[in-house]
Amino acid sequence: MPAHETDGLWVRCDGCGKLVFKRELEKTSFLCPACGHHFRMGAPQRLALLADEGSFTPFPPLVSANPLGFPGYEERIRQAQEQTGLDDAALVGRAAIGGSSCILAIIDFSFMGGSMGSVVGEQLVRAFEKAAAERLPVVAVSGGGGGARMQEGIFSLMQMAKTAQAVGRHSREGLLFVSILTHPTMGGVYASFASLGDIILAEPGALIGFAGPRIVEEATRQKLPEGFQTAEYALEHGMIDAIVPRPQVAQCVGRLLLWHR
């Protein structure tokens, strides 16, 4: 659920409705101090939470082209770069988690909804290729709203094939892929690499699915079931391995990497 900014300093929690001091949130890994609701967090904060300190070496950055000549796309990219300090929606590099080396990819929702265009697709493919070459596991943290980068049209769609194939090649080397689904993982991201993990974990309350809830509601004209497409719902329907609260994610992934060394 989007965090409603009330003013610069306070945020209203979507879990319990209480106002939370932003500084406080940063100290608690973006968990509501009152109810434990998982706020969205940026890729750099996620990296700090997940990877061993000082272990991360990022891949060289890539910058999006405008393959369709979509009006205003370059400007959107530039704005997102300025706002987030990222080159695109994926932060990818070599890292260690709980002392085990891996290739880590984190999708950041604040960069154009974490949507997958050519850059995100290419970075993910490079992540799996590098991991295959060095016989390393891959840990990917997904959190992309609509999944597709509409401004890249068919090129965005093809990233689903490209990333799924990179997972397939890495997997056929007998290597581990841990896919962590955070709020929200939908559309083309969910229906490609993110679903193909050997182990699929999710954060509590994360929205996970193919078609967005509003689209489902409009198409079917039914009231959606309680908790539809949440991580808990996905677990109940057999779609994910486990729900892991944010404070335990690093330790959980660390154990998994250790067991697959």
Partner: peptide, 19 residues
């Protein structure tokens, strides 16, 4: 796009087909 389709893994199965 439907409730049952989501419950039965629409996203997962599309990924599986592609792979």
């Amino acid at each position: 796009p439907g409730v049952e389709a989501e419950e039965r893994g629409q996203g997962l199965v599309i990924a599986e087909c592609i792979e």
